[in-house]
Deep mutational scan, measured.
Amino acid sequence: MEQGTVKWFNAEKGSGFIERENGDDVFVHFSAIQGDGFKSLDEGQAVTFDVEEGQRGPQAANVQKA
């Protein structure tokens, strides 16, 4: 798993970007967020995640709040 920080997340659209510790920013969709309840992330929040190849390039998967 990688570690990173939420660069921004739009709760209305359900997507945003995570700033990786090593590498380019990666797209995140709300469906990749693990946990119960409303799936959203806050700017500056620390997260851990896997990276998968999506239709438009790398994207975060199995996102967990650190």
Rank of each mutant, 00 (worst) to 15 (best):
A11Q: 13
G14H: 01
V6Q: 01
I33M: 04
F49Y: 05
K39C: 08
I18Q: 01
K7N: 04
A60K: 00
I18L: 08
D50M: 13
Q55N: 11
I33Y: 00
Q3Y: 14
A46C: 15
E12V: 12
Q59S: 07
E53M: 15
V63W: 00
E19K: 15
F49H: 02
G35T: 09
K13H: 12
F30D: 06
G4P: 00
G35A: 09
S40D: 05
H29D: 07
M1D: 07
Q55C: 15
V28R: 00
A11F: 11
E12H: 12
R20T: 08
V26G: 01
V26S: 02
V26E: 00
I18A: 00
R20I: 07
S40K: 09
V6A: 01
N10Y: 01
A60Q: 00
P58L: 11
E21Y: 10
Q64W: 08
V26T: 01
Q59W: 09
V63S: 03
E19Y: 12
E21D: 11
E53W: 15
D36S: 12
E2T: 09
V28P: 05
G57R: 06
V47F: 00
G23N: 06
D24F: 10
R20V: 08
G4N: 00
A32N: 09
D36H: 12
Q59M: 09
V6Y: 00
G37Q: 06
H29S: 04
N10D: 13
D24L: 12
G37A: 06
G14Y: 01
F49G: 02
S40M: 09
A32I: 01
E43G: 12
E53V: 13
E12K: 14
H29A: 02
K39H: 05
K13C: 14
S15Y: 15
H29I: 02
Q34M: 13
L41H: 01
K39E: 05
G4W: 00
F17C: 11
K13M: 11
L41R: 00
I33A: 04
M1Q: 15
G57L: 05
P58E: 05
Q64I: 11
E53I: 14
A66K: 13
Q59A: 07
D50C: 14
V47E: 02
F49S: 02
F17T: 04
F27G: 01
F17D: 02
R20Y: 07
S31K: 06
T48F: 13
G4M: 00
G57I: 04
D42S: 15
K65N: 07
Q45P: 02
V63P: 02
V26Y: 02
E43V: 15
S31W: 06
V26W: 03
E53H: 12
E12M: 12
K65F: 10
A60P: 02
E19L: 13
Q3P: 06
G16V: 01
W8E: 04
G14K: 01
E19S: 14
W8L: 01
E52Y: 14
H29R: 03
S15V: 15
R56M: 10
I18K: 04
W8T: 04
G35W: 09
Q45N: 06
N62K: 07
M1L: 13
N10R: 00
E2N: 12
